[in-house]
Design a protein around this nucleic acid. Structure first.
Lengths: 125, 125
DNA sequence: CTGGCACCTGGAGTACGCTCCAGGTCAAGA
DNA sequence: TCTTGACCTGGAGCGTACTCCAGGTGCCAG
């Protein structure tokens, strides 16, 4: 079974070494294995989990809620219903986020068009 | 010409009173008028500008860049080309932002589906 | 004339999410 | 043997964007 060094994981997931250690410290990443020298060795499972974290972070989930999710995962299969609920509610949030973004973007594009129209008016006489 | 109290503006724009004062302090909002008692009185123009700020903020523009934009506006019409450039580049950023959000959302939805599939498997014997 | 409310100021404090640092270990290549 | 580079730890520090606070003013309703 493949293992990865911190450097490889950082490369693959886009999280900095410090962030990986930080996530482990706060319990977002539990029980990372070590080699004989005490250096971290990540499993495929760890990398998969980090990719999930990446999705949740990039969609604006606060760390506190990711911790709740991590806790559910740790508690085992009987929490799957709760996990679905958490993710679905987050998914709705993302949908609203995108909708707001689109609306604001529209307003910005109107402003751009307005400026372009202003520029098209002949200046001076 | 209509003027608005801080409370009204806060209500209309969704910015807190403290945030309105903060924006004025850092120069994002220039020259807000005062009544005889020294209380702020906002014009339609101020509210319009705040709505623009709202769009830029909600689409993730950092305050430092909004300050650059405010500076361009203050410098007058000859900066319109620069303003278009700034807004168009921001608009592209928003587009990328939405694309990333959609991609991450897709992954989250896959996870939800995965959990639902797991739940559909008969447990026990 | 007395609350009560909305507002004022300058300055300190807060929340979040990292990010950096000093001092140290270990293994491999020149 | 020496150096280099990746990694280790605990703890401090930082950037962003507000948010809160104490102490005070002005005005209107009862």
């Amino acid at each position: 079974m493949a293992v990865f060094t911190p450097g490889q994981v950082s490369e693959e997931t886009g999280f900095s070494l410090d962030t990986l250690r930080y996530y482990e410290r706060i319990g977002l990443l539990g029980n990372v294995g070590r080699n004989a020298a005490g250096q971290r060795r990540f499993t495929d499972g760890d990398v998969g989990w980090l990719n999930m974290i990446r999705c949740l972070r990039d969609t604006g989930m606060p760390i506190a809620e990711m911790l709740r999710f991590a806790e559910l995962v740790r508690q085992g299969d009987h929490t799957i219903r709760d996990r679905i609920e958490l993710l679905e509610s987050h998914d709705e949030g993302v949908e609203r986020q995108i909708a707001t973004l689109r609306r604001r973007q529209g307003a910005i594009q109107n402003k751009i068009q307005y400026y372009k129209d202003v520029m098209a008016i002949p200046q001076g006489v």
